[in-house]
Amino acid sequence: MRPFSYQRATDPTAAVQALGAAAAANTPLTKATAQPLAGGTTLIDLMKLDVMRPAGIVDINPLAQGWSAIELKGDGLRLGALAKMADVAAHAEIERHYPVIANSLKLAASAQLRNMATLGGNVMQRTRCSYFRDVTYENCNKRNPGSGCAAMDGVNRMHAVLGVSDQCIATYPGDFAQALIALDAMVEITGRSGTRNMPFAELHKAPGSTPDIETTLQPGELISAFSVSGRWPRSVYLKARDRQSYEFALSSAAVALDAQDGTVREARIALGGVATVPWRAREAEALLKGQKFDDGLAQRVADAAFAEARGRRHNSFKIALGKRVVARALQQAVTMEI
């Protein structure tokens, strides 16, 4: 870890000012000299590993008063970016109306981490690629653009099979983001010129030729809230992992259905643990629309979800696994008692 300056943001304006003022033009967000600190469970970790070296930290926790509300109003949901994972996971109304959200959070990390970590920090968490996290490896395009990718032919069991490029195959590791993208959530962004809303699906960027650019956020912008319209009681989050808790997904599926008597009116499917960004399987969803659900259909949908998948030495198993997870999540959602 390197020395850094620490500043507590007293209000949103001061926070975005402090973050934006320090930023040089054209620096990717993750390399900006000032970084916001929420629960710190990703940021401090990466600073200790010397992967992130911000000169300054802007602690946004004082904004929690205004930015941590959990609100169900009308038929929608609004979640403050500083709400703790644990609080949202245990919220009775969310469990009832948005099981996919509650479970994506409950099945993530550990109780201790969920108590510290915020929703905003959670969606912004960075990949767990071992080579990215070990600075003794020069070759990581995400950390050192243009240096190559150590994972491509290295130990890549945890890596992605969807959304990969020949520059980077790092998995987006989070769970909650899959629920958000499945539910067509919006993200509210507070910047120096006020707040704006955009589809959550536009927040993350696939690696392409610039794996160091992970989101469309600019230095000086903060996520202040997430919102979802409609209720999604028929929704599940299914997560396959090596151990029963405190472990990232090898493959997960966030599924939300509008269905009656086995006929699907509308379906939303997102995939976790297998893709470089929160991943929406739109072509697969389309196969379900208006259809009578059966196991054969589930299989076709699962195949479609992974049609573009590209496996490597240690992670090819994720393709077959991911299909089974999607099919099972769909079955569970269809048969759910609501």
């Binding site: 550990s110 767990r128 071992s130 090596d242 151990r243 029963q244 808790s245 405190y246 472990e247």
Partner: peptide, 10 residues
Amino acid sequence: ADYLLPVNAD
């Protein structure tokens, strides 16, 4: 985190 050991839930 990556060297897997059982947690209570296991």
